[in-house]
Structure formats: C-alpha cells, structure tokens
C-alpha cells in the first residue's frame, strides 16, 4: 500500500484561498503542475462539491478533493495544499479546512491502493495537524511516507 509519488510541484504550503472553490482550484493546479491531470479535472472536482456538497471534508480540517476517473487524468496522483487561514466548506462537523488533498485516479479500481495508504497515514489523529503545520515539502512527505519520485 503505497501513495503515488509527491514531487515538490504537487505540494503547495501556506496558501491563501478566499473560499472553498479557490482552495479546490489550488489542489487542481498542483495536480496540473505535477503532470497528473489537465485543468478540466480541477473543474470536475469543483463540480462534485457543487452537486453533492461538502462531504469530501472527511475529517476535521481535511478535504479529499477528487472526481471520477477520466481522459483528463494522465496518471494516478496526489497533491497536498495547506492554507495559511482555514476556509469553511459548509460541512456540519469538520469545518474549517486547512489541508486539501487532491486525488486523481485512472480507474475506479486503482484508487483503492492509494486510499488504503491514505487511511494508514491519517488514521493517526496527529497526521492532519502535522501536515497543516509543515513548512517544507520534505516535512509533508515525511508525514505521508511518500517519495518525491516514483520508484524505478
């Protein structure tokens, strides 16, 4: 159970976002910058929340932004965005959000490995505050147990 690689281009720390849409777009931009997905995937992640609400805020302070697999996803990938000032997403219990994980997968089946690895990391309640407080990409990778590049 391993996470997709997490290059520096997939990590944006201490960002500012005026609202949840901007926060999601920051995560989408990190997926685009790291070559995982096209910009249309960002729009689709926003659409998921427009349609279904803030259910992606799955734990206090943490949003798992994602959409279905599609042609705009080049490979499975993860992005991590932290906010200098947390923003509300409209979740009844877990607002405000300071950590946004952007997840892109290529097939419905392939996401299971990544999410199992994410669960391994974040079932430890100290992980979300640790990512939120990280000031370097290395610190984020250390909490997640992620590598900078894919294993050869």
């Amino acid at each position: 159970m391993t996470l997709p690689p997490l290059p520096n281009s997939a990590i944006a720390l201490g960002q500012s976002a005026a609202d949840w849409r901007e926060a999601i777009r920051l995560a989408g931009a990190a997926l685009v910058d790291s070559g995982v997905a096209d910009a249309s995937y960002t729009d689709r992640m926003v659409d998921v929340i427009e349609e279904f609400g803030a259910y992606i805020v799955i734990a206090p302070g943490l949003a798992l932004a994602h959409a279905r697999p599609g042609n705009d996803v080049h490979r499975e990938g993860l992005a991590v965005v932290t906010l200098a000032t947390p923003v509300p997403f409209g979740h009844p219990h877990n607002d405000p959000v300071s950590v946004i994980l952007g997840l892109a997968v290529t097939t419905p089946e392939s996401h299971v490995t990544s999410v199992a690895a994410l669960a391994n990391v974040f079932n430890d309640a100290s992980a979300i505050p640790a990512v939120a407080a990280a000031t370097t990409p290395d610190a984020v990778r250390a909490v997640l147990g992620a590598t900078e590049e894919a294993a050869a």
Partner: peptide, 16 residues
C-alpha cells in the same frame, strides 16, 4: 457511499 464512487467511499470501505 460517496458522490463520485472513488476516493472518500474507498477510505470508508478500508476503515470499515
């Protein structure tokens, strides 16, 4: 159950 059928529902499945 989640909105997209990937991601958050997968986390629920694994932890359940």
């Amino acid at each position: 159950i989640c909105g997209a059928g990937v991601g958050t529902s997968g986390i629920l499945k694994v932890n359940a």
